[in-house]
Design a protein around this nucleic acid. Structure first.
Length: 206
DNA sequence: CGTTCGATGCACT
DNA sequence: GTGCATCGAACGT
């Protein structure tokens, strides 16, 4: 896997710019079990205390602390008591914003991803063995499971650890829509995705 | 095709 | 005690 690790400056920009530029970049996780990686094909921005769907909406709390910190760090939290969801902190420190990674096009470590997904967990059903590769990282909860990303990765520095994002020079088209799965803040079309990828979550399948 | 619903942990009120 | 930035099985049409 060739490419340049995204520097802090990439993340220290307006969240929507980061969101758009994240599509086509490669999320990499080097774990003891092996390396996994995939191309970002679906991401969502959560921006500021005025965004009711953003975890910063209630103001600073212990949980959302990473959002207020420096950009280029991971924000991982437990959702529905079951899924670890991974975000990338954007914008300068003090401006709470994050981009949720919702789907990847798997490129490296596919057997390892398949192995992880095949293990049933708490409230999680094992993925069918005959499921296509595009299903491995389709959806934010599925993606962290396949990549081996856990709550222990919260606040990890994406510019200097085993979890990082690579610019491999891939060009992917970007389409925009409303964010998925939220009950407030649905007006904002802050979901960016690659309309040509089959790994994108949501109702559009085939 | 569509909608409903249970599993599960915890931050926040 | 309430409500999730989910997932997939089970059901209805």
């Amino acid at each position: 896997m060739r490419g340049r690790r995204l520097p802090r400056a990439f993340y220290a920009r307006p969240a929507l710019d980061v969101t758009a530029d994240l599509i086509g970049k490669i999320l990499v996780h080097r774990a003891p079990a092996g390396e996994t990686a995939g191309v970002n094909v679906e991401v969502e921005a959560y921006i500021g205390e005025s965004d009711p769907a953003c975890h910063a909406a209630p103001g600073p709390t212990p949980r959302n602390r990473p959002l207020y910190g420096a950009p280029g760090y991971a924000y991982v939290y437990l959702n529905y008591g079951i899924h670890a969801l991974v975000n990338v902190v954007a914008e300068p420190a003090g401006s709470p914003a994050a981009i949720l990674i919702r789907a990847l096009d798997p490129t490296i470590g596919i057997p390892l991803m398949r192995r992880r997904r095949s293990v049933p967990g708490k409230g999680v059903v094992a993925m069918r063995a005959d499921a296509p590769d595009a299903e491995l990282c389709r959806g934010p909860g599925n993606l962290t499971r396949a990549m081996g990303i856990t709550l222990g990765d919260n606040m990890r520095d994406l510019t200097g650890g085993q979890l990082f994002i690579l610019d491999a020079g891939l060009a992917r088209p970007v389409a925009w829509s409303e964010r998925i799965g939220i009950r407030v803040g649905t007006e904002s079309r802050w979901r960016g995705y690659d309309p040509e990828s089959r790994a994108v979550s949501g109702p559009r399948r085939r």
